[in-house]
Protein backbone atom coordinates (compact mmCIF):
# COMPACT_ATOMS: atom_id res chain seq x y z
CA UNK A 1 0.00 0.00 0.00
CA UNK A 2 1.22 3.51 -0.68
CA UNK A 3 1.41 6.22 1.93
CA UNK A 4 -1.79 7.97 0.81
CA UNK A 5 -3.82 4.81 1.09
CA UNK A 6 -2.28 3.91 4.44
CA UNK A 7 -2.92 7.34 5.91
CA UNK A 8 -6.46 7.37 4.59
CA UNK A 9 -6.96 4.07 6.41
CA UNK A 10 -6.11 6.03 9.54
CA UNK A 11 -9.04 8.26 8.67
CA UNK A 12 -6.80 11.31 8.24
CA UNK A 13 -8.51 14.35 6.78
CA UNK A 14 -8.28 14.77 3.01
CA UNK A 15 -6.99 18.31 3.63
CA UNK A 16 -3.59 16.70 3.99
CA UNK A 17 -4.17 14.11 1.37
CA UNK A 18 -6.00 15.84 -1.42
CA UNK A 19 -7.55 13.28 -3.68
CA UNK A 20 -7.34 10.29 -1.33
CA UNK A 21 -10.64 8.47 -0.94
CA UNK A 22 -12.05 7.89 2.51
CA UNK A 23 -12.44 4.20 3.13
CA UNK A 24 -15.06 4.30 5.82
CA UNK A 25 -17.73 5.82 3.62
CA UNK A 26 -21.25 4.64 3.08
CA UNK A 27 -21.63 1.23 1.51
CA UNK A 28 -22.46 1.09 -2.20
CA UNK A 29 -24.33 4.34 -2.71
CA UNK A 30 -27.74 3.71 -1.24
CA UNK A 31 -30.27 4.36 -3.96
CA UNK A 32 -33.52 6.06 -3.09
CA UNK A 33 -35.37 2.76 -2.31
CA UNK A 34 -37.51 2.45 0.77
CA UNK A 35 -35.72 2.43 4.10
CA UNK A 36 -38.11 0.24 5.99
CA UNK A 37 -38.06 -2.34 8.71
CA UNK A 38 -36.82 -5.33 6.74
CA UNK A 39 -36.94 -6.98 10.15
CA UNK A 40 -40.44 -8.19 9.41
CA UNK A 41 -39.82 -9.56 5.94
CA UNK A 42 -40.35 -13.29 5.60
CA UNK A 43 -37.74 -15.79 4.47
CA UNK A 44 -37.40 -19.52 4.10
CA UNK A 45 -34.30 -21.38 5.28
CA UNK A 46 -33.07 -24.86 4.44
CA UNK A 47 -32.55 -27.51 7.10
CA UNK A 48 -28.79 -28.09 7.47
CA UNK A 49 -29.01 -31.61 8.87
CA UNK A 50 -27.59 -34.69 7.15
CA UNK A 51 -29.46 -37.96 6.88
CA UNK A 52 -29.20 -40.25 9.88
CA UNK A 53 -29.38 -43.99 9.30
CA UNK A 54 -32.57 -45.68 10.50
CA UNK A 55 -32.25 -47.44 13.85
CA UNK A 56 -32.98 -51.16 14.04
CA UNK A 57 -34.99 -51.85 17.19
CA UNK A 58 -33.63 -54.67 19.31
CA UNK A 59 -36.07 -56.42 21.63
CA UNK A 60 -34.74 -56.75 25.15
CA UNK A 61 -34.03 -60.27 26.44
CA UNK A 62 -36.70 -61.85 28.65
CA UNK A 63 -36.10 -61.19 32.35
CA UNK A 64 -35.39 -63.83 34.99
CA UNK A 65 -38.01 -64.85 37.55
CA UNK A 66 -35.48 -64.13 40.27
CA UNK A 67 -31.70 -64.06 40.60
CA UNK A 68 -31.64 -66.87 43.18
CA UNK A 69 -29.39 -69.73 42.14
CA UNK A 70 -28.39 -67.97 38.92
CA UNK A 71 -25.00 -67.10 37.44
CA UNK A 72 -24.40 -63.39 36.95
CA UNK A 73 -21.45 -62.03 34.97
CA UNK A 74 -19.92 -58.73 36.08
CA UNK A 75 -18.19 -57.23 33.04
CA UNK A 76 -15.51 -54.55 33.38
CA UNK A 77 -15.17 -52.61 30.12
CA UNK A 78 -11.77 -51.25 31.10
CA UNK A 79 -12.41 -47.69 32.17
CA UNK A 80 -10.71 -46.31 35.23
CA UNK A 81 -11.54 -48.24 38.41
CA UNK A 82 -14.60 -50.01 37.01
CA UNK A 83 -13.08 -53.26 38.26
CA UNK A 84 -12.82 -52.03 41.83
CA UNK A 85 -16.50 -51.10 41.83
CA UNK A 86 -17.53 -54.47 40.48
CA UNK A 87 -15.46 -56.25 43.15
CA UNK A 88 -17.47 -54.37 45.77
CA UNK A 89 -20.62 -55.51 44.03
CA UNK A 90 -19.39 -59.08 44.10
CA UNK A 91 -18.91 -58.76 47.87
CA UNK A 92 -22.42 -57.35 48.14
CA UNK A 93 -23.89 -60.32 46.29
CA UNK A 94 -21.95 -62.79 48.47
CA UNK A 95 -23.40 -61.10 51.54
CA UNK A 96 -26.99 -60.60 50.38
CA UNK A 97 -27.57 -63.34 47.79
CA UNK A 98 -25.10 -66.10 48.72
CA UNK A 99 -26.77 -68.51 46.29
CA UNK A 100 -25.94 -66.33 43.29
CA UNK A 101 -22.79 -67.34 41.39
CA UNK A 102 -20.90 -64.19 40.50
CA UNK A 103 -18.30 -64.29 37.71
CA UNK A 104 -16.03 -61.28 37.22
CA UNK A 105 -14.63 -60.68 33.73
CA UNK A 106 -12.55 -57.91 32.21
CA UNK A 107 -13.40 -57.32 28.60
CA UNK A 108 -10.34 -57.90 26.39
CA UNK A 109 -8.80 -55.21 24.16
CA UNK A 110 -9.25 -51.50 24.46
CA UNK A 111 -12.62 -50.11 25.39
CA UNK A 112 -13.62 -49.50 21.77
CA UNK A 113 -13.08 -53.13 20.78
CA UNK A 114 -15.59 -55.97 20.93
CA UNK A 115 -14.89 -59.27 22.74
CA UNK A 116 -16.87 -62.07 21.03
CA UNK A 117 -15.32 -64.96 23.05
CA UNK A 118 -16.57 -63.32 26.26
CA UNK A 119 -20.10 -62.88 24.89
CA UNK A 120 -20.04 -66.53 23.83
CA UNK A 121 -19.00 -67.63 27.32
CA UNK A 122 -21.76 -65.58 28.96
CA UNK A 123 -24.34 -66.96 26.52
CA UNK A 124 -23.30 -70.51 27.42
CA UNK A 125 -22.71 -70.24 31.14
CA UNK A 126 -24.48 -67.16 32.39
CA UNK A 127 -28.03 -66.13 33.14
CA UNK A 128 -27.59 -62.36 33.39
CA UNK A 129 -24.94 -59.67 33.07
CA UNK A 130 -24.02 -56.35 34.71
CA UNK A 131 -21.67 -54.11 32.77
CA UNK A 132 -19.69 -51.21 34.22
CA UNK A 133 -18.83 -48.27 31.96
CA UNK A 134 -17.58 -44.78 32.68
CA UNK A 135 -15.05 -43.68 35.24
Amino acid sequence: MNRRKLLSLLGMSPALLAGAQMEAQQPKAAKSGKVAAAENAQFEALNPKGSPPPVKLIPMAPRLDSVHGKTIYLVDTGFMSGGVLLQQMQIWFNKNYPDVTVVFRKKAGSYMEDDPPLWKEIKEKGNAAIMAIGH
Binding site: L10, G11, S13, Q26, A30, A38
Partner: peptide, 13 residues
Amino acid sequence: VSVSVGPPTFTDT
Protein backbone atom coordinates in the same frame (compact mmCIF):
# COMPACT_ATOMS: atom_id res chain seq x y z
CA VAL B 1 -6.17 16.79 12.52
CA SER B 2 -9.31 15.00 13.52
CA VAL B 3 -9.63 11.38 12.47
CA SER B 4 -12.79 10.22 10.75
CA VAL B 5 -14.37 6.83 11.37
CA GLY B 6 -17.18 7.39 8.89
CA PRO B 7 -20.83 8.39 9.33
CA PRO B 8 -22.82 7.32 12.42
CA THR B 9 -25.14 5.04 10.45
CA PHE B 10 -25.19 3.09 7.19
CA THR B 11 -28.24 2.29 5.04
CA ASP B 12 -28.49 -0.57 2.56
CA THR B 13 -29.98 -4.03 2.15
